[in-house]
Amino acid sequence: MAPTLSPRLEQEIERLCERYPTRAAALLPTLQAAQRELGALDEAAIGMVAGALGVPAVRVQEVATWYTMFKLRPEGRHLVEICTNLSCHLCGGSELLDAVCRELGVRPGETTADGRFTVREVECLGSCGTAPVMQIDGAFVENLTLEKATAALQSAP
């Protein structure tokens, strides 16, 4: 039997569709909702989203692969994103990325062996006045130092 969306997710998608004149326009928020619930957007998830919105699966695939925030396969339980762009670069962001990667024994883009963390080098996070900056599971840690980064990693469940 083909996998189906949970009733909760189905309802959420219908609510999202009310915001736009076309159902296709609800694609980004729908993928976001699906990713929140399912963890990653695998082929089955893509198919279900396509079905729910009435758009071809290739269209959904095309969009899901184009944006950097969509996850196509499962990653670590916690996402650690360190900015190394302009202002963060000037304040040691690249050095921080290296240090955090060394501490976790991974290279940027990789997941720790225990599956706890995925570390990513990211572009400007819009927080350059408090550079360097990282996000852990979407929450900002600003004026970042190695001590702060380590503390944030340790307090992640």
């Binding site: 326009a25 609800a26 758009v55 269209r59 925030m69």
Partner: peptide, 21 residues
């Protein structure tokens, strides 16, 4: 909510993205 793409700040890219593309 966008999904991570700098070019979506360009106004017509933003519109494409809003349309689900």
């Amino acid at each position: 909510r966008g999904a991570g793409a700098y070019v979506c700040g360009e106004e017509t890219a933003l519109i494409e993205s809003l349309e689900g593309k």
